[in-house]
Design a protein around this nucleic acid. Structure first.
Lengths: 180, 180
DNA sequence: GTCTATATAGCGATAGAC
DNA sequence: GTCTATCGCTATATAGAC
């Protein structure tokens, strides 16, 4: 696949960043082009319409999520701890793609909802063999959702989202409850 | 306080509904006025600017959340069960106000973020005396966030959000873990 | 492959009749 | 208290030069 056009990725990065920082309303073609350092015409060569930009984001999310599942499965602490810990972070590439896609889902874009559902489903399938039953799996998944919601989606909504030592305690508490 | 102007509440209802169903981008003055059954001029008599409409939503959320905390405290099954169960629902007045406000928070409206944080904080204070420690409180709150995220915010994102018997099991599982 | 210039449409908000 | 009409701005998208 050699070197993909630098501008194309730069534009997608800028779009993602705008969605995360200021929401879908602020992520206009002009604003994205400016942040990416290209002109509007340059942007529209790579992505002829706004829908094309959105679809590129969903494709990026799919690819990153597949890699993330693999990473979870090979993690030394096991998939559950890996899942909860990664849900509490909000800086890496998967997280950014998810948050950006969630912004579009909140604006009623159906394809964004479908993409998010697909990712959550693949995580759920990865967690399931490592917990006692379906209720335990639900607990793990919902906890992950809650952490995501607080750390990323809510833009600092929680005043007390656990991290550091509190997160360690939470992880071991949950593992004790759900282990098969 | 006698009868408040019927149109004023109808407009706010319509705004809330548009935010929930189609997101902040679709909730234009025209669209809200049309759904409320008034003209744009009529809407602008009650809410001279879009910011006024937003502020009215935050005020409604504050009032409903205060009533909800009282309801939690007086619930026969205790605040924890009441909190988790109400987080899993998504039809009543508080839920609608929260989801609508969350849509605005996702579009970078700071006042919406503050309003949501205030509500979550009051719930957290209500839950705290009924659980063992801060980690247990975090678990309950994050579980509630996860349920909210799935049932309301994600617009059907989860394929397997627990309800009915699965929710009962989840509630009793969590209560066993967090009880002081 | 990237740019400028422009067409078209929809937004929030104002003015003033009733 | 509610309406119609309209202004000014900004958005997406097109056309075509370089």
């Amino acid at each position: 696949m050699s070197r993909p056009p630098h501008a194309r990725e730069a534009v997608l990065d800028a779009y993602e960043q705008m969605l995360i920082d200021e929401g879908a309303g602020a992520a206009t073609m002009d604003a994205v082009a400016r942040l990416a350092g290209v002109s509007k015409g340059g942007l529209l060569y790579h992505y002829p319409s706004k829908t094309d930009l959105e679809n590129a984001l969903y494709a990026r999310l799919d690819a990153l999520a597949a890699a993330d599942v693999e990473h979870m499965q090979n993690h030394p602490d096991g998939p559950i701890a890996a899942y909860i810990r990664s849900s509490a972070s909000s800086g890496d590439a998967v997280d950014r793609a998810i948050v950006a896609t969630a912004r579009l889902a909140q604006e009623g874009r159906d394809d964004a909802v479908v993409a998010l559902r697909r990712v959550r489903e693949s995580w759920s399938r990865t967690v399931r063999p490592h917990v006692r039953d379906d209720v335990a799996r639900d607990l793990v998944m919902l906890l992950g959702d809650g952490l995501y919601y607080n750390n990323a989606l809510g833009a600092g909504m929680a005043t007390s989202a656990p991290s550091g030592a509190a997160l360690d305690t939470l992880v071991s508490l949950v593992e004790r409850v759900v282990r098969s």
